[in-house]
């Protein structure tokens, strides 16, 4: 491995790990004001919204294939299926779609 590659890997590892680790080490006593606690409780739902859209429309070069996947995943999840079933079901439906199209 070249020095350059080693430096890149080390640098990337450091700047990725530090933001992951700092909050756990810095914020020991959880006595944030209620308003800020409320905001942090909101973060997971907002993050999921941002992680799903618009990425889900773009994962495949054919946007209609992506849209079909999105619809399939939402439909399966809304029936109350668990996560693994939602994942496998969506893959299955897209595979069938691409075989028959």
């Amino acid at each position: 491995m070249s020095f350059t590659m080693a430096a890149i890997i080390f640098g990337m590892a450091a700047v990725t790990y530090i933001p992951r680790m700092l909050p756990f080490v810095l914020f020991k006593n959880k006595e944030l004001p209620p308003f800020w606690q409320g905001i942090l409780k909101n973060v997971p739902y907002a993050t999921l919204g941002a992680l799903i859209f618009p990425g889900i429309f773009l994962f495949h070069e054919n946007i209609w294939f992506s849209v079909a996947g999105a619809v399939a995943a939402f439909l399966i999840a809304f029936t109350g299926a668990n996560i693994i079933l939602t994942v496998i079901g969506s893959i299955g439906i897209l595979t069938i779609l691409s075989v028959f199209s």
Partner: peptide, 17 residues
Amino acid sequence: ESMGIALYAMFIGLLVP
């Protein structure tokens, strides 16, 4: 190609309930 949906489907499975 179909497996590209996997992580999004997981996010959806987490969010929908």
